[in-house]
Write a protein that binds this DNA or RNA. Structure first.
Length: 120
DNA sequence: CATCGAACCAACC
DNA sequence: GGTTGGTTCGATG
């Protein structure tokens, strides 16, 4: 299901910029110490997970808008193209209290589903 | 669990 | 039209 946008009286399919704004809004809901996955965002936005990566890359306000809290659904850290690279991403997450099982993987219980954030 | 190939889809060239 | 990602999935060991 593609994301739709209501704009001066009619409905159209969301463009990449619309999705970027929507993604940013969702990112701001993720609490410190928690992460979500590209997949979850993808489901919420109705796009391919790889496109979510592209969106995160377009976020020029990292790490204020916390795209570093988006990781792979299998627990691996994923990428980070903003300054500092993946090492900085890991550092941020550790600093925020995200628990790592080991160097590669994040604990299951550090994940929060977008449903928990957008409902109630 | 780890690895591998294929599917994904909009951007970019 | 082919390649490329901040990925995922299913199959296989």
């Amino acid at each position: 299901m593609p994301l739709l946008v209501y704009e001066n009286g009619n409905v159209r399919k969301a463009g990449i910029i619309d999705m970027l704004e929507a993604a940013k809004a969702l990112l701001l809901l993720i609490p410190i110490g928690k992460v979500t996955s590209y997949k979850e965002l993808a489901l919420a936005l109705g796009v391919n997970p790889r496109l979510v990566g592209k969106l995160m890359k377009m976020n020029d306000e990292a790490p204020i808008i916390p795209c570093h809290r988006v990781v792979r659904s299998n627990g691996e850290i994923g990428g980070y193209s903003a300054v500092g690279g993946v090492d900085f991403k890991r550092k941020l997450l550790e600093l925020e209290g995200v628990k790592f099982k080991n160097k590669r993987k994040i604990n299951r219980n550090s994940f929060i589903s977008l449903r928990e954030l957008t409902i109630n």
